[in-house]
Design a protein around this nucleic acid. Structure first.
Lengths: 276, 276
DNA sequence: TATTTAATATCATATATATGATTAAATGGA
DNA sequence: TCCATTTAATCATATATATGATATTAAATA
């Protein structure tokens, strides 16, 4: 039996957030908060005051105040005295720009998401694999009235979610089965046991169809249509998947339309020239 | 006597790092560390192990280990088991991308810096104003043997540095004088008193010449040539300045050449079409 | 201007984090 | 395989942070 280093760290880091679903707790509180604050601004795309940040992220007002002022001090936030509001500084924009010379950095991935969001009105998600999870690394919230709010950073089991199946299309069956075993071992806390054969089958279907339709697979009442992005899309060969998510009824009805749209935008934004 | 809110928070946040120069302490330790880690990867542009990060950033190894694993947990870092190394995830790339539809986001600012770095071999800096400081929000380290290492986040007095004078070209004399007063009040801890008239004169010269040459103004033995960037370059009207920095002798000798190069790259990368 | 309301900073302290020392694991030779 | 070496995780605890309550400030209104 090979000892797995990974297992150790996973155990120690995942405390009460051991289960899947909602965001990861993350052991260092303010570390996570800083990033959630930056993502919050990413979501609202305007300046915001202490009270608003505190409320939306459910941080205590006093802590939020201290943290925001600390970020100003460090040069990652600007303070706008006239409105007593905060806004990420250009220093943030530069973080991570080097990572990707391709679609992420040049903005075509973002533009693609914006078109998807605009044309569907639904929640649009990019997911990447993180351990046994598919983690939502970027979320454009739905603009429709009836909507599920999906916080960025949310996780779903990679072996049991629409985005997960899409991510797994890049893996062979042996790897997939290994992940199922690992998932059943690590995440087996009240979660129904994952059926390995069914996972392999679902991934296979995703490969054949080019997408996966989830009808309330994780969230009852929610439907998701996910497709894998072309490999190498992010510069270092890490699989990514995009999903459109909304009320199940809605997704079911518009399934064909959304699948067509997804294929279309991927084709237009990500295929043509992978040059800068 | 008007009460200034800003003053209060400045006092409480700036502890022992009250003086200018080296990086700001920032009150929330791990908040700052997270961002310094991301910037570190920005600097080395490859994966790195715990030990290396710990050493280069002078964090304790144990703290570094915990923090990196926490970032993996949160989905901001990828762990590469085969090399036991870490690398920022695509989630980081998306932070702050919305902020700027212009040169920062589309990469032309970055490409401009890269060309500057390549052609001069010297340290290349972008600075933005942060309170009474010009803060280095992005730094490409020199590739020459004899070099000063300039950590990103470093600060200089905006009223007494090459980048500062460049940033102040966007301000009128009244604002500049106000900043001098404020600087003398807030930062007067062993720093020679700033001569307001001389500051106004230096900014004026920067306006006329289009650049400012600093001969060891802050760091003895170091020379800097700074120029203001066109306004609105970052999408929300925040002044930015670019500087090339190196050994004073070197800078003095190549002054004309570097000034010409700076003007040239700004012209080529940032003037043409401010469209996406 | 005085008063009310809303928003944010500050304070003391309970609590979570950061750290040096240690243990455990992985790697590379003999 | 075993040992030496390198690297990273873990532990207990000193220390720094997070927080509810409160004071302060600014804005809105009379």
């Amino acid at each position: 039996m090979p000892t797995r280093r990974t297992k150790i760290s996973a155990d120690s880091q995942i405390t009460e957030a051991t289960s899947y679903g909602p965001p990861a707790a993350g052991s260092v509180k303010s570390a996570g908060r800083v990033l959630r604050i930056l993502e919050f601004f990413d979501e609202i795309q305007r300046d915001a005051r202490v009270a608003e940040v505190a409320e939306r992220l459910a941080f205590p007002q006093s802590s939020t105040s201290i943290l925001l002022n600390c970020l100003v001090e460090l040069g990652y936030m600007d303070y706008l005295p006239e409105s007593r509001s905060f806004l990420p500084s250009p220093r943030v924009t530069l973080l991570g720009t080097w990572l990707d010379k391709g679609p992420v950095r040049n903005g075509s991935l973002i533009r693609m998401l914006e078109e998807l969001s605009h044309k569907t009105g639904d929640t649009v998600i990019i997911a990447a694999r993180n351990g046994i999870f598919a983690q939502y690394i970027h979320v454009l919230q739905a603009r429709s009235a009836m909507r599920f709010h999906v916080p960025p950073g949310s996780r779903r089991l990679v072996v049991w979610s629409a985005t997960g199946f899409s991510l797994l299309t890049a893996c062979n069956d042996r790897e997939i089965r290994g992940l199922c075993t690992r998932t059943n071992a690590e995440a087996a806390l009240g979660i129904p046991r994952i059926d390995t054969n069914q996972v392999v089958e679902n991934v296979g279907r995703t490969r054949r169809d080019g997408y996966f339709f989830s009808a309330g697979l994780v969230t009852p009442g929610a439907g998701s249509i996910a497709i894998p992005l072309p490999e190498g899309i992010d510069g270092w060969n890490r699989a990514l998947a995009v999903a459109v998510s909304g009320p199940l009824q809605d997704m079911t009805r518009r399934r064909a339309e959304i699948v067509a749209l997804l294929n279309d935008v991927v084709q237009r934004y990500l295929r043509p020239a992978p040059s800068a």
